[in-house]
Amino acid sequence: MSPVTTSRPRRRLVNLSNFPLFRGTSIAVLVGMYLPLLLVVFYSFNQNRLAQIWTGFSFKWYDFVFHNDDILRALKNSLIVAVVATILSTLLALGAALGMLRMARSGRVFAWGLLGAPLLIPEIVLAVGTLGFFLTIKVPLGHVALILAHTAFCIPFALLPIRARLAGLDAAPFEAATDLGANEWQILRRITLPLLAPGILAGALLAFAISLDDFITSFFIAGPGATTLPVYIFGMIRSNVTPAVNALSTLLLIFSATLLLAVYLLNRIRRSD
C-alpha cells in the first residue's frame, strides 16, 4: 500500500446524517425489524403454556416440535414441494434465459415482460386464478398441484439473477470457443453453464426461499393431505399461541440464516480462487 494515501471526503448531494431525526429513525427502524425476531427466539425457551408470560427457561417446546407428527409431516411436505419446485423452476428459467438470447430485441423485451410481470401481480390474484384453473382442468389438489403452482410462481424469481449474470457476460469467450472447435452443445456445457453457475445458484436459492415461505398459494392449493409448514403454523396460532410456534419459527430462522451464510462463504471461496 502506498504511504501517501490521501482520502478525499466523499461528496454527497445531501448528507442525511446531519438531519436531526436521522439517528432516531434509524434505531427505530432496526428495532422494528429485529425485535420481533428476538422475541420469537426468546419466548421459544419459555416454560409457560402461554407464549407471552415468561415463567422460566425450558427446551420442552423444541422437544414438542421434534416429536409432533403433524409438524414433521408439514415440514416434509414443505421440503418436498420446495426442492422439486426449485429444480423445475430453475431449469425452466435457465432455458428461458438462454432461449431469449436467440430472440430479436423486441421479442426479448416482450418475453422478459411476460415472465417478469407475475412479480408485480398480487399473489392473492395468482392464487385464486391457480385454484380456479386447477379445478377447471381437474388437477386434484395436493402435492402435484402444489408443486406445479410453486414452480410457476418461482420462475420469475429464479430468472432474475440468471438473466442479470447472462447480461454481464462478454461475447468474446463464446466466439473463442467456436473458433477452437466447440459446437453449440459443447459451448453450453463447457462455457455457458460454468460461467452462469453463480447466477443459477442464486436463482435456485431465491426460488427455494420463496417456495418454502409461501402461504397464500399453498393455503388455497394444498388440500387436506399436503399441508405445508406455513399453512400448519397458521392453523396452530388460530387455535392458541403456544411457545411451540416460537420454537418452530426459531428453527426456520436458524435454517435460513445457515443457508445465507453458506452462500456468502461459497461466494468468498469462488472469488479468492
Binding site: A172, P173, E175, A176, L195
Partner: peptide
C-alpha cells in the same frame, strides 16, 4: 484459429 483483441480467455 484466432487470437482475439480482448484475448477472450475462459475466466
Amino acid at each position: 484459429n484466432t487470437v482475439f483483441q480482448s484475448y477472450a480467455l475462459f475466466p
